[in-house]
């Protein structure tokens, strides 16, 4: 009966029930990993692949794609991904009031601030550099902002997965910048773009 709420059979069953409910609540509060990571992964896979084809590994392009075409597609894909992520974050914090939603709001504005300052730095400094280094500056700061915000997100929401994803982005960014624009784009496309798609789908199945 609804009023009685069903008697609980055994202590084991009860602990399992509590744990299941806790896990379901945590995953509801964390948001849908498919909405948060898969669009972002797709944007990077497409955008960085085009950049890679433009740069090539030995300085010779693999496909007739100009830097501006590659950057334009990359930017549009990221804006679309950002819209999906914003929708995911809104869905995640809707229906919750208190510390969690306050943290979510501040975190959302941190993304906005990070991306805005990245754009200012890129527009000011990239034109002063040779074309390949200018592109690398853009990509390098973009990944730096994302890496730090993922790590900060992990710390704020006590989410180790998100934290280590941030660590991975930071590591790929550092190695890629050292190796040069072609390698940076290749590593970012495969490891971070492909990686986030796989992780987003995997984390939905294994919350």
């Amino acid at each position: 009966m609804a009023d009685d709420g069903d008697r609980i059979p055994s202590p084991e069953e009860t602990l399992r029930l509590i744990e299941e409910q806790r896990a379901a609540t945590v995953s509801r509060l964390r948001g849908d990993p498919v909405l948060l990571y898969v669009p972002w992964g797709t944007a990077w896979l497409v955008g960085f692949s085009l950049l890679f084809l433009h740069y090539g590994l030995d300085g010779r392009p693999y496909a007739p794609i100009s830097l501006w075409q590659a950057l334009a597609v990359h930017l549009i894909a990221q804006v679309v991904a950002g819209a999906f992520a914003a929708y995911g974050i809104t869905k995640q914090t809707s229906g919750v009031r208190g510390d969690i939603s306050t943290k979510g709001t501040m975190y959302g504005y941190s993304w906005f601030a990070g991306m805005a300052v990245m754009t200012v730095i890129g527009i000011r400094l990239a034109p002063m550099l040779p074309e390949a280094e200018g592109g690398l500056l853009w990509a390098g700061i973009a990944l730096l902002v994302v890496a730090i915000l993922y790590m900060a997100g992990g710390a704020i929401f006590l989410n180790w997965r998100m934290f280590f994803l941030g660590v991975a982005v930071a590591a790929v960014d550092a190695v890629g910048v050292v190796l040069g624009p072609g390698w940076h784009a290749l590593l970012a496309a495969v490891l971070l773009g492909g990686g986030q798609i796989v992780l987003g789908l995997w984390w939905r199945r294994h919350p």
Partner: peptide, 21 residues
């Protein structure tokens, strides 16, 4: 009672200072 236990477990997971609609 199973249903109320689940309600309390869910609300407890959010931590103090949070409400759910």
């Amino acid at each position: 009672a199973q249903a109320r236990l689940r309600v309390v477990a869910a609300l407890n997971t959010m931590g103090a200072g949070n409400e759910m609609a």
